[in-house]
Design a protein around this nucleic acid. Structure first.
Lengths: 338, 338
DNA sequence: CTGAAAGCGCTTACAG
DNA sequence: CTGAAAGCGCTTACAG
């Protein structure tokens, strides 16, 4: 393994000059710079991460904190994050932190203290539902790390956030149903402590209001973002005497559950019931009929959040800029014109 | 941040003694051991990973090499691996290596050389399809890392392997269909370069043979393990004049595709066509009807592979033990008795 | 059984 | 613009 001294020797300079060139620092003549780069290339130099970490007091790593592996949302964000990290010479580490609701403040603090001390990441990437947890945000503010989060947020807090305008997307999707002639549209909510639930619901209501359609509370169903809750809600809804002509489920998994409930009861989708979801997750094109939904740029979430995090490492700026990315309505086969 | 000297001072011993205690090395009196442990606890000592890495020439990290994030198989294995790593004080890093088939030997070697030099993992965890690539195995053997892989293998090579007996599982599943009265059973193959395809197919044939049923080549369909290939194969199969009463798809995603093809053509599942898959992946209980399949212990794959890898770090033993875990047949609603 | 010294490969702080 | 020295926090190799 080539070290810095080897490069320095080859180029006929001191190791400090090599360090300057390789870290893109100023105060090196251009010809020396060239010579060093060439020498590094020739000896096949790769910097030792552990030495940089030890002396530089930085870890060159970012920790993504996730609550579960059973989420295609999380996995897609992770993929984008891994790619961005690889490009910038950082490592992405994954930690699973389950059931934080069960921990009191002290336990939560201790858990993260241990995690931070063991790996000392330069940055943290939070994904839903952890990115929605105010208590967690408060705990983390006590540590010296940059944080970025992904997912919808109202409050312009002090944390860098990458998201889409979920309310606008939910409005668009509801309008799509209205444009197809639907006047009686049910809405299934997701978990109550997630901003996604609130934002998507607000978009739904706003679209109804703008179109002059009545909001009917009995058409709002509870949910948990899980497939099983869609199955249950669909079953309940479809056994009613008066059925809506369409359902907007707050995510695709629940929409898939509603579709399965319809199959079981012999209700034809979309002819007797139109269904739309949200996210465009794995299952969206594997239901029958395939789901009309909104695509979130999940890979981009990860990539953008990581990039901002790394860019901010040098700066003092800890302000919580919110970055809104583009979403897209994906038209498939689960909506009928009536 | 507490360092080793702080612990040593508190305990009234040298830092070498602290190092011995914390690394469970011999040659320390029990009372000193106790004193050091207590001191470490009191000052809240957490070892510096980078210092250990730098001096010890080990990274305390394991790299999981994966081809894609769009695989619930990979994600589940990863989850098990992360947990095992956390328990043993290791870090799991994730790298994505796409399209290695497009690279020649030199490029492949260069790609991995770069990856290994940048992060210097102590071990590598390979998952399908990368764990099936003989060329990759050859390239990796040139580096000084322990390797473990997950997934089916015939050959008792020189790489530690964690798997299930896929052939036996495929036999069981085929027998399940036969026991339900099916005599004409189609089989959809997966990707041809994966051992899973070969093993599952062999199990299917063996079961037919044992039951005295004829093997009919026209009932063997090509596939790629992807949902779309199931859709295509199902469509082709169901348009034939003579249809089998059951299909065994080499994984769940294809089985889900076949079910969708049936819905589209108005063929009732399972009444007119029974379908079984393999893996028990995310989609298996979200199809309609839900899939009868074989569950692989994916979390356990990750956990066991990581444990074996870490255990082997001290040893010289580089033999490629194969470890077979238990599988389980999951009965759902996609098979009819005829 | 215990410890003093050296050194892993870098970056920081300082000097010229 | 360039470099010699010190040191990050451990483990290795050696001595007693």
């Amino acid at each position: 393994m080539a070290r810095m001294v080897d490069v320095a020797e080859k180029a006929g300079v001191s190791i400090k000059t090599v360090s300057r060139v390789l870290n893109n620092e100023p105060h090196v003549r251009e010809d020396l710079r060239e010579r060093v780069r060439k020498a590094a290339e020739e000896v096949g130099y790769v910097p030792s991460t552990s030495a940089r970490q030890l002396r530089g007091r930085r870890s060159y790593s970012i920790h993504m904190i996730s609550h579960s592996h059973r989420s295609s949302y999380v996995n897609a964000v992770q993929f984008g994050a891994v790619q961005a990290c690889q490009e910038k010479g950082y490592q992405l580490m994954i930690s699973l932190v389950e059931n934080i609701a069960d921990l009191d403040w002290g336990q939560l603090h201790a858990k993260f203290a241990k995690l931070m001390e063991a790996s000392r990441p330069d940055g943290l990437l939070l994904v839903p539902p952890l990115s929605n947890d105010d208590r967690l945000a408060e705990v983390l503010s006590e540590f010296d790390v940059r944080i970025a989060r992904v997912g919808p947020h109202d409050l312009s807090g002090s944390i860098r956030t990458v998201m889409i305008d979920e309310r606008a997307a939910a409005r668009d999707l509801t309008n799509y149903l209205i444009d197809h002639g639907h006047k009686s549209i049910a809405f299934q909510r997701g978990k109550e402590d997630q901003n996604a639930t609130q934002e998507r619901f607000k978009g739904y209501r706003e679209a109804l209001e703008t179109a002059g359609l009545p909001f009917r509370p009995e058409l709002v169903l509870p949910g948990s973002f899980e497939f099983a809750s869609g199955l249950k809600a669909g079953d309940e809804l479809l056994r009613r005497k008066e059925r809506p002509s369409a359902v907007f489920a707050a995510n695709d998994d629940m929409a898939a559950g509603i579709i399965m409930a319809a199959h079981r009861l012999g209700v034809s989708v979309p002819d007797e019931l139109s269904v739309v979801g949200f996210d465009d997750s794995e299952i969206a094109d594997k239901t029958w009929p395939a789901l009309t939904t909104v695509r979130q740029p999940l890979l981009e979430y990860g990539a953008v959040a990581i990039s901002r995090l790394i860019e901010s490492m040098g700066e003092d700026d800890v302000s919580g800029a919110i970055e809104c990315l583009d979403y897209r309505l994906i038209e498939r086969e689960s909506v009928a014109r009536i």
